Computed example of a mutant assay.
Amino acid sequence: MKYLLSIFFIFQLSCTNKIQPKLENNVAPEIEAKHIAENLTLHQKIVELNKSMLEYMKTGQPLYSKSDVDKCSEILESYIAEISKSKSKEEAMNMVKSTVLKLNYLNNNAKSELIETEERERIADIIISATHKKGYNSMDEDITGNWREW
């Protein structure tokens, strides 16, 4: 009898969250956390870029404004939305060119202070990652180089 009760007790515990980790979206928490960490979304990368630019404004005396930072984010968000709908590499490269030219104009209006080394790397990563996700290029291919002035 004790044996049956022990088996029943163990069975009940195994069916609760006390032994098995809670599954959200049918994925174990450690797998979900790894997935989230590895797949920082492009939108999140833009948010981080925006925060970084605004933080610099607090300590430095840049020639750009919050409006410039917001415009940069808008350009990148628009690019991501457009690329996700693209049907060909040629169409995507036209979107890359248009986006880079808009960023050139914005940066030139800020006396080339808006997009410095760190920002350049982040922006290029966002642009390249978006087209890479569509299968148009490799991650080590700088598709912005033909038009980029920053």
Rank of each mutant, 00 (worst) to 15 (best):
S88T: 15
R120F: 02
N108D: 13
E119L: 00
Y136L: 04
S84N: 15
K66N: 13
V100G: 05
K89C: 04
K87L: 14
S73C: 07
N94Q: 12
S84T: 13
L76N: 02
E113Q: 15
V47A: 14
H43Y: 14
T144A: 02
A124D: 12
V27Q: 15
P62E: 10
L49Q: 12
Y105V: 03
I126P: 04
A37H: 11
I123K: 03
H35L: 06
A92G: 14
V47T: 15
Q61F: 09
A37F: 08
N50V: 06
C72A: 15
N25W: 12
K102S: 14
C15T: 12
A37T: 07
P21V: 04
K71V: 10
N25T: 10
T131M: 09
D70W: 04
V100C: 05
T99P: 01
K85A: 10
K58Q: 13
T59G: 01
A37N: 15
A28N: 08
E116N: 00
N107G: 00
S67Y: 06
D70A: 14
N26Y: 13
K111E: 14
I83H: 08
T131H: 06
I127A: 09
I75F: 14
T117F: 06
D142W: 09
S112H: 05
K89E: 09
H132G: 01
L49E: 09
S112A: 04
L63K: 15
M139P: 00
P21C: 02
K111D: 12
E30T: 11
I128V: 14
T41F: 07
L114N: 03
L49C: 08
E32Y: 08
E91L: 11
C72Q: 09
A28Y: 13
K89D: 03
S129M: 11
E74D: 14
D125M: 06
E32F: 07
V47L: 15
Q61L: 12
N50P: 01
M139A: 05
I127R: 06
D125Y: 06
Y105M: 05
N39D: 09
V96H: 06
D140R: 05
M95C: 03
E91S: 13
K18S: 11
N109H: 10
D140P: 00
S112Q: 05
D68E: 09
I80M: 11
K85I: 07
H132C: 08
H132W: 14
E32D: 11
P29R: 10
N108K: 10
G60V: 05
S84F: 06
M53D: 06
Y56D: 13
K58A: 10
I143G: 00
S86K: 08
M139T: 07
T41C: 06
V100W: 09
A81L: 12
S98K: 14
N17F: 11
V47I: 15
M95R: 11
E24K: 13
K18T: 08
H132N: 06
E119D: 05
I143E: 01
L42Y: 03
E48A: 10
S52T: 02
L54V: 12
H132L: 03
E91P: 00
E141H: 05
I83C: 06
N26W: 05
S84K: 15
S73M: 05
E116R: 03
E32C: 02
S98P: 00
K133N: 10
I36Q: 10
N146S: 12
I127C: 02
Y56F: 03
K97G: 04
N26Q: 15
A37W: 04
A92P: 05
T117K: 07
K102P: 00
I126V: 15
L40N: 03
E118G: 04
L76H: 03
V96R: 08
